[in-house]
Structures are given as C-alpha cells and as structure tokens.
Design a protein around this nucleic acid. Sequence first.
DNA 1: TGCCCGATTAACT
DNA 2: GTTAATCGGGCAA
Length: 195
Amino acid sequence: MSKRLTRAFFSRSVHLVAPDLIGVTLLFGGAGGRIVEVEAYDHTDPAAHSFRGPTPRNAVMFGPAGFAYVYRSYGIHWCLNFVCEPKGSASAVLIRAIEPTTGLPVMRRRRGVTDDRLLCSGPGRLCEALRISGADNRLALDAAPFELLARSGAVEIVVGPRIGLTKAADKPWRYGLKGSRYLSKPFGRLARRSA
DNA sequence: TGCCCGATTAACT
DNA sequence: GTTAATCGGGCAA
C-alpha cells in the first residue's frame, strides 16, 4: 500500500515537484492511474498563466501549495494543474498524461474509446476520463475526491521541451516516464535522469 | 465592447 | 502534415 502525498510534497519548488510526480498514482473519484508526463510552469515563465499577475482565473496559483488549478483550454477541454511553492510564486505542474490503472470501464465510457492508450494520454483527455472540470478548481489535493499515492520504487525520467507553446518553447520543463507507452507525444533525444 | 489567440484534440489529406 | 471546432481570458480602445 502506497503512502498518500501530503501538502508538504507540494511545498517545494515546482522544478523539484514536477519530476517527483512521475510514477505517482493519481486517482479522482476512484478512477485514474500512474502519472507518466507533466510540465512545470513558474511565474518567470512567459508561457505561464500567472506571468502577468493574478486574475480571477489564475487566482488559485497565487495561493498555497497543494491545490488543484483547473482551466479551460481552447474553449473545449479542461486541464489539471497542481499548485506548488513558494506561496505567491504562482507556479504549477500541468498533468499531461497518466497510465490508466484503475476504473478502466468508466473511463472508457466517458472517453468513448476502447484503446487504453488514448484514454488519458493528453491533458484534455485525462480530465475527460477522470471527469475533472472547472467545478474542481481550488480543490485540495490531499483530500477526496483526489487521492495521490507515492511511487513505490525508483523511476527513470526523461526531459524535454514543453508541448504546444509559442512562448518560452525552449525551456526543458517537460518530464516523462522513460519508455512509457502512454505519453501524449514521444520525447526526442532522451536526456536521462534517475530518481 | 471588440478582437486575437491559446498549456488541445480529432478528423482530415 | 494540416485544419476545423469552439469560447473565455486578457488587453487595447
């Protein structure tokens, strides 16, 4: 049985938290799986929503660590982020892909696909599979319906540039589980690190 | 108030 | 590889 992540886990720099999330199990309302891909955003980052200061949409990013920031993307999809420290730095980790392990039937139904590799391999897809929406913005990550379980062993992590950005597209702040078949997109030249 | 564009996805050619 | 779908946020006027 894995240990639940506490708020202390998120009360660190986003650049430490992001790679540490790879391999963590994310469940929402009992469905979900293992995190295999994330991206880090901080307030010095022109690509981050928080870059231009607090607004009603991004307010939760300016609050304490350990809460969910959910926003609508391209008017269609929802994207899930975890707010990190230090407080006021307005940094967060975008959860981009998970390997589905729990609640597969309900997730297949919500997504309308049978191929499990398409269930949660993308930020919009995983929110649809877990039924996460704007109503879940500001929820605490250490309480139901969220359940975050620490990884059990070491994992090999690959690093690369973030996906879909026009600003700061060169920053290597995307992290993935090496060799995972559930990434939203493959990584290029594999920079390797252990954790 | 109006305008532009995006931390995406799926369905095309 | 290209493109439509679709709409709220952020900024200029």
